[in-house]
Amino acid sequence: MNLKDMTGLQIMQAIASGELPFAPIAKTVPMEFEAAEEGRVVFKATANETHTNPMGGVHGGFAATVMDSVTGCATHTVLGAGVGYGTIELNVKMCKPVPFNKTLIAEGKVINKTRRLVISEGYLRDETGSLYAYATATNMILS
């Protein structure tokens, strides 16, 4: 099936199942697609030494990129075939330092959709539920 004929949810589910490749950013910022349903996606993300900031910790851009990815992909799950989106605002709160080489769970959820905008939120947590980053995003619908 042509990507232009697939809904956003169909595309996200095809990526999650391995039928379609994940975006190349997932090589730079290691992310694996775990699940996609309408209005929600789940990734796994693992920072490594290539994400080091000048102080020796994980750069904040790691969490920001993961949050932009999950909020955007959650947005994509509520869009029709041939409809795209663009992030127009991303607000990320860093709650505690992201550890190296520890797989974290990233979840994105749509919280509101209008004719032109989708608002979503994202969480980056460990397996115990401890919060590392929280984000809200506004995406413009591009048809």
Rank of each mutant, 00 (worst) to 15 (best):
N2F: 07
L3A: 05
K4I: 14
M6I: 13
T7R: 01
G8Q: 05
I11R: 13
M12C: 09
A14W: 12
A16W: 06
P21W: 10
A23R: 06
A23F: 09
I25D: 02
A26I: 06
K27T: 05
T28L: 14
P30S: 06
M31V: 07
M31S: 03
M31I: 08
E34H: 03
A35R: 13
A35L: 14
G39C: 03
R40E: 14
T46N: 04
T46E: 14
T52L: 13
P54D: 13
P54W: 15
P54Q: 14
G56H: 10
G57D: 13
H59W: 14
M67Y: 00
M67I: 01
M67A: 00
D68S: 01
S69C: 12
S69A: 14
S69L: 07
S69F: 12
G72S: 12
C73S: 15
T75C: 15
H76S: 14
G80P: 14
A81H: 04
A81F: 07
G82L: 11
G82S: 04
G82F: 11
Y85E: 13
T87I: 06
L90T: 01
V92M: 02
M94N: 10
K96D: 04
K96I: 08
P97H: 09
F100S: 06
N101R: 05
N101G: 03
K102H: 06
T103R: 05
L104T: 09
E107K: 11
E107V: 11
G108W: 01
K109G: 02
V110H: 02
R116L: 15
L117G: 05
V118W: 11
I119D: 04
I119K: 04
S120Y: 03
E121L: 00
E121Y: 00
E121F: 00
R125L: 14
D126W: 12
D126P: 01
E127C: 03
E127M: 06
T128D: 15
T128H: 09
L131P: 04
Y132Q: 02
Y132M: 05
A133F: 02
Y134P: 00
A135W: 00
T138F: 07
T138E: 06
I141Y: 10
L142V: 08
